[in-house]
Amino acid sequence: MIPQSFQYESPGTMADAIALLEKHGDEAKILSGGHSLIPMMKLRFATPEYLIDINGIPGLSYIREEKGTVKIGALSREAEIEHSDLLKKHFPIFADVTKLIADPQVRNRGTIGGNLAHGDAANDHPAVMMALQATVIATGSGGSRSIPIDEFFFGFYTTALKQNEILTEIQIPVPPAGTGSAYHKLERKVGDYATAGVAVQLTVDGKGVCKAIGIGLTNVNPIPLRAVRSEQALLGKVINSENIALAAQFASEDCNPSADLRGSEEYKRAMVAVLVKRMVLKAAERAMGK
């Protein structure tokens, strides 16, 4: 399988990349890790006339903490995220999720920015970013703007990024002490998309009361889904089996999975409930240092 012919551009600066996007309009696509785009081009589902490769632009790959915020450069590879000590310190969820994204070779290429900008509800980072209350930075010719993760995903492969914008950074608030996070996806085999996936980050006080919570769901809705009612079922309440069961039930009711080779709608709803229970418990255990 070979992609349809296209013109290849490899700008050396962000300004050049944005200028090329403005020049070529809808005929251009940004190439980051390429492990979603190139397979789509090989299948001719995507047939861009211009491919703008941002891999040669310096300064887009970093993971650092600044004033209570962790900043991840969009071109950071999944393998770098998997092995980052800074992310391990604040967000155990990244070790959970990266291990489940594709396989080691793909993680050597795939980037966190591409995973989000692709706008696919089957990808794993969108739900994680919802749990972590992340903000996406988009850069265009007029400068950069911040997009809260809840306003980023619009529809099937559609995001809030404008045609002339590039996702350049992800910002995640460093959580307070007493916070834990966890992710798991049910997958049939290594490298598969999730049958269902659940991301949770929560903060508990000394009495076991939930002071903050984020829950994101993977591949059980047309767009990445925040489980709002599930969050409300736990926020301000003691994390006990009764409240967790309610949160699990709400998530399974509020998602909209499609039946496919990975299972029926009913099965997927049931798995969402199971995973919400397990991930809330795991995040709570981590929050309490167990």
Binding site: L31, P39, V106, N108, R109
Partner: peptide, 14 residues
């Protein structure tokens, strides 16, 4: 780095 060469363009190896 180990990579899958079916999913990388030759021009990217420049």
């Amino acid at each position: 780095k180990s990579v899958k060469s079916c999913t990388i363009l030759a021009v990217q190896a420049n």
